[in-house]
Design a protein around this nucleic acid. Structure first.
Lengths: 335, 335
DNA sequence: GTGAAAGCGCTAACAA
DNA sequence: TTGTTAGCGCTTTCAC
């Protein structure tokens, strides 16, 4: 009798322990209604065989897969990696694993990844949707979806996000109060929901204050940051403040100003969206709007599991407050 | 006839298209040997129903799950989140999804997570093992494993890592050449493989140079960094260089020295392991040993897929070279 | 080219 | 307390 080559199945355990399949099933599901003798026998067989129940077979029977999906633009981004960590932690608390997918903010990729997740019959999905996210991909998907950081375009899907508009407003107002007159707004992809809200917050404030609306909204990397900023560094179009809306750009702006010899905050103030690890260590420390990343992610995950437990989600939108962290780069008084 | 409530199955498609199950199966697997007429009918039914094949059922039949596991100490850590991104990218190229698990460097958690992955019948596993990783958890697992960043303790599992010893040696030698006499080595968990190798590199150099071996190897956070460094900031035990071995500690050390009024590099030089985003932006820029994170992760993933394709892994260990990035904090000449 | 039917590993209903 | 058995959704012979 040749032992079957592959991984042991429940029947192998049953045979080795000299019991029926159902008994093994009972044992691996809590061991209720099983005599001590057989329980021990089965446990020993499991141990000896290194048996692990096949989840695929279980979920075929209609059980939960104990797996949720997470789709983010990138895990390399500190915002989303912190979120991923928090979500995975909540999931772990529910005995659930995380299937990670990366969309790069491209709806085609997003769709492809979601299709892949649907095939795996995830119990639920947490998603930071791309701008062009298409709801039809969820047709007949059969699981709850919770968005975070951004809402699902044109769809009433539960979402947890922060108050981007208020945050940008607060930061801009702070600059205005500090006496800045020409505030340049720097942003990445102008299509991005978060960018749009933040730019709007900035705009409403400068408009109300009668200041010029100066925005460069398509800064992608250091090179384009140089290109975008240079015209504003001297002459009559010279600015006296920068409001950076995108994490990665902030540092570029800081370096460019410094390299151009423009003293911060004396000549040009800086305020930025998203706190970062060394914001308080740079010279001068950078004034930022801080989002409760972990709080947002955790809340989204909790909402998903509520939906899983209770059957339905009650809350449609949770908007978290952000915090303006006053630091010297604003040139403002801490009040 | 009530339409079944849940997600559509292959049979639903078959019935709607008026064909047999096998035909639908053929269509979703490439559509070979199917008449154009039925192919169209089936595709339409799939579209209308929003049908997605159930992977669980497929893998029950013995097919690959097209899913690999990734176990890291933390995804919030920039090193591991960059690695995760790279690995997910390679996986995507192979039509494979990533099941993400976090061990927090605790072998119990690691074991629990791996068990969970085994149940999901992953095709393979990429792992940054904890110090106490127990090989027995893979008993009968039936899939290839590749480690990265650290080898599996006492086990001959394929691994991709960087030359921690050489990197630490190079950094320390650089400090020695710059004339430093009292070099303090700061490290986190002394049990960690990478820490041990780096400390050894440091030690061998200071010993050979006849300099004192000064090490604080259990620095966890900013508070403990303060506690560890303070005794060395003044008096006769005063140091003239710090070699920080752990990412998170480096910035703490930098701040502590700065706050203590010890000029860098004039009074105290700094060299550190692992490059970080703002290392070149701080004042002074921090001299670091840079690991090819993405290269390491990608290579590990590629090795796993090679093992999956070819059946076996050939390489047992890949050691990547690191690079010493000269920056002003060392007080050295750039050569 | 096509469909019927067996079986992958498991759970749950039922019988004993 | 037990074991037997019928599927879960799919792929894969094997006839037609």
């Amino acid at each position: 009798m040749k032992p079957k080559r592959s991984v042991p199945a429940l029947m192998d355990v049953a045979r080795r322990a000299g019991v029926g399949a159902a008994t093994v099933s009972r044992v691996i599901n809590g061991g209720q209604n099983v005599s001590a003798r057989r329980l021990a026998a089965v446990q020993q067989a499991i141990e000896e065989l290194g048996y692990h129940p096949n989840q695929a077979a279980r979920s075929l029977k209609g059980a939960r897969t104990k797996t949720i999906g997470l789709v983010v633009p990138s895990v390399a981004d500190p915002f989303f990696s912190a979120a991923a960590e928090a979500i995975q932690e909540v999931a772990r608390g529910h005995g659930t694993l995380l299937l990670l997918a990366v969309s790069e903010n491209q709806s085609a990729r997003e769709q492809e990844q979601v299709a892949s997740l649907i095939q795996r019959r995830i119990d639920g999905l947490i998603l930071a949707p791309s701008d062009g996210a298409d709801f039809s991909m969820f047709k007949h998907a059969g699981f709850p979806v919770v968005c975070f950081d951004r809402p699902f375009p044109g769809q009433d899907i539960p979402v947890v996000l922060s108050d981007n508009y208020a945050g940008a407003k607060a930061a801009t107002e702070h600059l205005v109060k500090a006496g800045r007159k020409r505030i340049l707004c720097l942003s990445g992809d102008p299509q991005l929901f978060t960018s749009k809200r933040r730019v709007k917050g900035y705009r409403d404030v400068v408009r109300a204050a009668g200041l010029p609306y100066l925005a460069e909204v398509s800064v992608q990397d250091h090179e384009s940051a140089v290109a975008a900023l240079t015209p504003y560094l001297s002459g009559r179009s010279r600015i006296d403040a920068v409001f950076s809306i995108k994490n990665a750009i902030t540092v570029s702006a800081y370096k460019i100003l410094r390299d151009a010899g423009l003293e911060v905050p004396k000549m040009v103030a800086i305020a930025a969206y998203d706190d970062f690890e060394l914001a308080d260590t740079l010279d001068p420390p950078i004034c930022v709007v801080r989002q409760p990343v972990v709080g947002i992610a955790r809340r989204a995950a909790e909402m998903l599991f509520e939906a899983l437990d209770r059957g339905q989600v009650q809350t449609k939108m949770v908007k978290m407050e952000v915090e303006l962290i006053h630091r010297a780069s604003c040139g403002g008084h801490s009040r």
